[in-house]
Design a protein around this nucleic acid. Structure first.
Length: 721
RNA sequence: GGCGAUGUAGCUCAGCUGGUUAGAGCACUCGGCUCAUAUCCGAGGGGUCAUUGGUUCAAAUCCGAUCAUCGCUACCA
């Protein structure tokens, strides 16, 4: 069975099962991988392209509970949604599987055993919440309580949804089991850890070698190095949960593997799920080249953690050769957001009435390779209409129409002489260049070079004026058109990975089998001789302004209304008197102050003023506190507000604002009213407070307290924070 | 604050290891063609290559500093 064919194994990051992918997700992994896979296929390489839904983990369990179904049922439902979307986008997986298959259990367990036998697994005890009533350990997500940072009452044990901070469940105040409400007890539980420290040398060697060999992008290499330097510690690979792959070790019967450990192995098991000879792909490092596609947030899993697991087995696995990691695609200068309804998601794209090839074209044309890029509806329309339709589709159409009109649609031998379009466009060199870009997974550039070829085709057509020559020299006209016909056929082959649907329609209209869409057929025109073509149909429908405007409106999401006049009122600034001050026990730069806010309210505030002020320079002074800020935990000490200081970066001076009044006054501009709602630090950071001419201002309006302006002594110009 | 990335025409971007008057597409202005339900071709205007030092015979390109934007991170409070 083994041939001399190159074997290319392609994976695209496994989407988490209950997130519906948006266009940014789609271009990031699945679509990019698909173009490369299609290229490999038409190049005659033996190609395996796998992906699937990542199904295990607490998120699925929680969601299933909410919907009142089992995790399995939930995954069935969402898996179908994913599959449907990718089918619509014409993604040709060898297999789009799921991590909840039997092979996953077998392979994850066997890999684990190998790692265990080699001594890279260590056991350790951690303390975890346990619900007596439910008789189970509570995964981080299953526990709710008050967030120690912001005071949000329904914070989840792993992360507070209000302030976004990552949490340890033990930090929560008044914790509760999220299913029964019982107060959990904290019990010691044994877990297994992958000893990355011990693997460090191997990982580093592998990264050094492989990054060069596989020509990793700078971005991927930087993230990887950062990760390795940041410290490879022991990482926990088990969880107390039952939706996952069981840990095959005595004493761990009730535990499953943690998703980061089992998900990448999903690539292997999904392959095994459909192909009996999966080992010829995944255990064949000398014969197989592995290309992996993902968004930038997934890099360390593929360059460090997954390789570490495989290295630890000591076995001969096929490992990552080339990583293709994209930056993010934003939507009309915002982030895609399901909850805010911003951006186009896979299911919506499908219902938008626009040809999937047009999405494919635009997403790849704008592929975020080096930078984040934007999805703009106007840009979408302009690029689609002006590039793929006006340039390529029009070239196809004029060539075919001309052949129909003047030669009854019969094609003669393709002219490749020095007068032909091939010489005119320096065709051979261009094609080689495009092929090499494909090989390097430079998908955006390859696409642009193909379009450049189309321009040469149009120019050749224009320059030769066959519509005039036909009147005198039919033979010459035939040569012109036949060369263009062959030229367009070749370009279409090159374009197939990007817009497979349209190219298939094109091949049908010229009566050529789609089996002939092969890179090796470029330059081979024997099969075109004597071809009888059909009248061409319309390859694409142009995007109309009205439709685009409608869709833009539909997917705009909730608009943030920024009213400059009320902007200042998002914050509340209040004066307070420092009644005690001491050094933070755990930090060099921080003071911990008790501040009397008036009316007997005392707040504890932490501020980073040690390098700038001595204790007695601040004690008993009246200062300004951001009064409606979410409390934050700074190196173990609660800070219930922020002490305002001006900051002159150029001079390196920090000056605390000392208002000329007593404690308990609000700071205003004009007659603004202080906000009573709690805001986050990021909201506060958006409010531009500055010092100009020794006076504290908001957008050129002086801040006032008790009828007076707030002045600085040392700093004339600067920011306030 | 630290690390990393980015900053080139109105817009989207090319410009690798430094080498002639800085490029493309879109948009704009003008001209031409008509095979093309899509148009196309040509010409033109428009840039102190973020700012600023330095290395060099030569810098958008290399090095340093600064500023701005974005991402991650922190003793941001």
């Amino acid at each position: 069975m083994s041939s001399n064919k190159r074997k290319i194994l392609i994976t695209s990051a496994l989407p988490y099962v209950n997130n519906i992918p948006h266009l940014g997700n789609i271009i990031g992994c699945v679509l990019s991988a698909d173009v490369f896979a299609k290229y490999c296929t038409i190049s005659g390489y033996e190609t395996m392209f796998v992906s699937g839904t990542d199904e295990y983990g607490t998120t699925t369990v929680t969601r299933a509970k909410q919907e009142g179904i089992t995790p399995k049922q939930l995954c069935d439902k969402y898996h179908a949604i994913h599959k449907d979307i990718y089918d619509w986008f014409n993604i040709s997986f060898s297999h789009f599987g799921r991590t909840s298959c039997d092979e996953q259990t077998e392979i994850v367990q066997s890999i684990f055993k190998e790692i265990y036998d080699k001594g890279y697994i260590v056991e350790d005890t951690i303390t975890q919440p346990f619900c007596i009533k439910c008789d189970m350990y509570l995964a981080d997500r299953y526990i709710e309580g008050t967030c120690p940072h912001c005071g949000y009452e329904k914070a989840k044990g792993d992360q507070c949804e209000s302030c976004g901070k990552l949490l340890d469940p033990a930090e929560l105040k008044s914790p509760q089991c999220s299913s029964c409400g019982e107060k959990p007890v904290f019990k010691d539980t044994n877990h297994l850890f992958l000893d990355l420290e011990k693997l460090k040398g191997q990982i580093e060697d592998w990264v050094t070698k492989q990054s060069e060999f596989g020509q990793w992008s700078n971005n991927a290499l930087m993230v990887t190095k950062g990760w390795i330097e940041q410290g490879l510690k022991k990482r926990c690979i088990t969880r107390d949960l039952d939706w996952g792959v069981k840990v095959p070790l005595k004493g761990f019967e009730n535990k499953v593997f943690y998703v980061w450990f089992d998900a990448p192995i999903g690539y292997i098991s999904i392959t095994a799920n459909k192909f009996k000879d999966w080992k010829s792909w995944w255990k064949s490092p000398d014969d197989v080249e592995l290309f992996q596609f993902m968004g930038k947030d997934n890099i360390p899993f593929h360059t460090v953690l997954f390789p570490a697991s495989l290295l630890a087995t000591g076995d001969n696995w096929t490992m990552l050769k080339t990583i293709s990691s994209t930056e993010y695609l934003n939507y009309e200068e915002q982030k895609f957001s399901k909850s805010r309804g911003t951006g186009v998601f896979g299911d919506q794209a499908k219902n938008s009435g626009i040809d999937p090839d047009l999405y494919r074209y635009y997403l790849l044309r704008n592929r975020p390779e080096k930078n984040d890029t934007q999805f703009f509806w106007n840009d979408f329309m302009e690029k689609v209409n002006g590039e793929i339709i006006a340039n390529y589709a029009n070239l196809v159409n004029r060539v075919l129409q001309f052949s129909m009109k003047f030669f009854d649609g019969s094609i003669n031998l393709v002219d490749t002489s020095d007068d032909s379009v091939f010489k005119f466009a320096d065709f051979e060199n261009k094609v080689n260049s495009i092929k090499s870009l494909y090989e390097k997974v430079e998908l955006k550039k390859a696409l642009l070079e193909i379009l450049e070829l189309c321009s040469y085709g149009n120019k050749f057509f224009q320059d030769n004026e066959p519509w005039k020559i036909i009147k005198e020299d039919k033979e010459k006209t035939n040569r012109i058109i036949s060369s263009l016909f062959g030229f367009v056929r070749d370009i279409s082959i090159l374009l197939y990975p990007y817009i497979p649907g349209a190219i298939t329609r094109y091949f049908n209209s010229i009566n050529l089998s789609t089996d002939t869409i092969l890179i090796s057929n470029i330059g081979n025109y024997d099969m075109l001789k004597g071809l009888q073509i059909n009248p061409p149909g319309v390859l694409f429908t142009k995007l109309e302004k009205e439709l685009v405007e409608k869709l833009k409106e539909q997917f705009a999401g909730k608009k943030e209304i920024i009213n400059p006049a009320e902007e200042f009122s998002t914050i509340a600034l209040k004066t307070g008197k420092i009644i005690s001050i001491e050094r933070h026990p755990e930090a060099d730069k921080l003071y911990v102050e008790k501040v009397d806010m008036g009316n007997g309210e005392i707040r504890q505030v932490v501020s980073g003023l040690v390098p700038y002020y001595k204790e007695d320079e601040l004690l008993n002074k009246v200062v300004i506190i951001v009064y409606n800020l979410k409390p934050a935990n700074l190196r173990g000490v609660l800070s219930e507000g922020m002490l305002l200081a001006a900051d002159d970066k150029k001079a390196g001076i920090v000056e605390v604002l000392f208002p000329d009044c007593n404690e308990g006054h609000y700071i205003t501009i004009h007659d603004s009213k202080p906000n009573t709602q709690i805001i986050g630090i990021e909201d506060f950071a958006k409010v531009p407070l500055t010092v100009k001419n020794n006076c504290a201002e908001f957008k050129n309006t002086p801040l006032q307290v008790a009828g007076k302006k707030i002045n600085t002594v040392k700093i004339t110009q600067g920011n306030i924070r």
